[in-house]
Design a protein around this nucleic acid. Sequence first.
DNA 1: ATTATTTGTTAAACCGATATAGTAAGATAT
DNA 2: ATATCTTACTATATCGGTTTAACAAATAAT
Lengths: 371, 371
Amino acid sequence: MNNQNRFKEKVTIDDVARLAGVSKSTVSFVLNNRPSISAATRDRVRDVIRKLNYQPNQIARSLSSRQTRSIGLVVKQIDNPYFTKIMRGVFEYFSGCGYTVLLGSSELQPDREKSSIEALLRQRVDGLILSPLQGSDADMSHLSLISQNQVPLVLLEKVANVAANVVDIRNEGAACEAVSYLIGLGHRKIAYYSGPDYSMHNRERLTGYRRAMMEHGLPFSASGVRQAGVYLADGYAAAKAQFSGSGERPTAVFCFNDLVAIGVMNALMELGVHIPEDVSVIGFDDIEFCGSVRVPLSSIRVPAYEMGKAAADLLMQQIGKTDSVIRKTVELEATLVPRASCARADGRPAGGIPKKKHASPDGLRTAGGMA
Amino acid sequence: MNNQNRFKEKVTIDDVARLAGVSKSTVSFVLNNRPSISAATRDRVRDVIRKLNYQPNQIARSLSSRQTRSIGLVVKQIDNPYFTKIMRGVFEYFSGCGYTVLLGSSELQPDREKSSIEALLRQRVDGLILSPLQGSDADMSHLSLISQNQVPLVLLEKVANVAANVVDIRNEGAACEAVSYLIGLGHRKIAYYSGPDYSMHNRERLTGYRRAMMEHGLPFSASGVRQAGVYLADGYAAAKAQFSGSGERPTAVFCFNDLVAIGVMNALMELGVHIPEDVSVIGFDDIEFCGSVRVPLSSIRVPAYEMGKAAADLLMQQIGKTDSVIRKTVELEATLVPRASCARADGRPAGGIPKKKHASPDGLRTAGGMA
DNA sequence: ATTATTTGTTAAACCGATATAGTAAGATAT
DNA sequence: ATATCTTACTATATCGGTTTAACAAATAAT
């Protein structure tokens, strides 16, 4: 009946109220720093709280206040270095302001994206950060599900025809920059090893690639694009297929991400193709290991950690402020980091820094010396 | 007053009950598949649920049932490949059985470990998986905090004097195996580049290193141990310090983890020290990139993903079953994967596979071909 | 036919907080 | 002295479910 004689029951607000000789309302007010409490009772209540080591039940709080002080983060792959940095950025931001982060991931399967979102909405997160899969068929019904629930949302890539808060990177521009750099080195036959087609980032990078080719009057043909994927094994397989075949070979390969690029390099090395003398390679994301792989890998540096923080910040601006819905798109810079994996088309070293200013080209120092 | 004319209020169990012409108890019973409901009403209620697109409020559920269907996972570093795999294992297990994973991380700071745990306990997680920092001063007070709250716990490394469920790896044995392998290659001056001292894994690996040295009658001196850390930069700095100094140099370096080992390799390469001719290097964890770095890195393969699954499984066995508390320690295998970073002490290639059976020594194939 | 048991359903207490309306006591104004 | 306003606090409804005890109707046992 009463919960005094129960074994080791949790301390509740009632226990505190009883011991402090006040009502639970008063305790609640103290807990939430309401002004209308005298210093004397405030201190008394706080003493009791400390004495009982009382921890308010966040679930009960959530139910009555309709705020869970938690947010959901749905990525595409939990163990992908790019998302990993984003996760850290998001986590650090929210743990700094007393929010909890609930983990979600589609692991590249649309149905699992949907179920992840549903699970998080059931847990009544106060907001959602989502890196959406978006195929050409584009079943974006779960997005409307989110807006139905009026949960603040920040997307980690643009979605066509959806007005939402977005934190994204300059994919097209950076891709164009990378391919232009290769062209500047004298390359004419440049391949794009593409990511999955449910990725907007992939589509934008493809556009950047195409634009660079066209702007320089180079032939853009579909054959220049090879379907790879997101994994090391995808790049490996794609390169093995192309370079062990008898077809025409590119002298440079621009890859959807660093994992694909590293897979490509592994394959080429196995086939006796030299990097960068025979083929130049550029990746995307600039993960930590770019400077440490067989041939230091040129890549596009993406500020993933900062993206996470930015997305968190943008989401936080929405939470609580029910009025004046913000619709903002933050686009972060992404710039080429040239390293040894690129050379001139005739095989000579790339030499100095290309026209535009870039981050330090020194793969070794950068990768070895910094955390 | 009533919530029918409010704008876009959420559908509640009462709405369902009203429309189906039953009590909310009945709806609740249907929701939880209680047997005592006639097929007719069950179907009718389910129809209404579907029609209204009703999603039960998990917060309300949690409050009354005292089960949140969520667990907390506290790692040491969100963006470390080892923890990343664990996270995926844990996530996949729990999302498979309708549980949500709340993210926590100490980011290597004890106070943040504590606050992470507190935050998760406030959210009333049904269980906790923790990779604990444990310094020599050993302030393990938060562990008692967990047991006070009677929250099922699984640790991701053993804690001295604490009886708990543990999923761990065979650190000492694997370390001993690695060092013995180096000794078998003729090395006599072998250094251990250690991890942080708040890591039990580090202490166990150190013990394994020491045991191997002693068993082979080699001098074990404190000078054989260099403090490195967990980051690439830590290994880089430690190696730079040792190999640019004038002191005695080891011919082999066994590292706390792969990041340190890769940092070491970067430093040595900068200093013109050749791997493996001059110095052999072994890492720990066998992260994906081991086969793709400058010189393919020998490492200890750790089944981190499986650890995550195992920890999740062990935790799940505890949840709900209040009686008969389980206390189990699951220790997973960890075995040496030799690659090109190791050679005989005289500089000649290591050649075949060492006595004991190991995973494929073919770094290139393994790393390039597999995901 | 009467009692006992099973089956299907519901009323109401409860989970542990928040929040609103209300109240008693003391301060200020009239 | 009475009315008005603060100030400090409390009673109570509420959030949206679960769960227990109660109950009526149908079935089985005596």
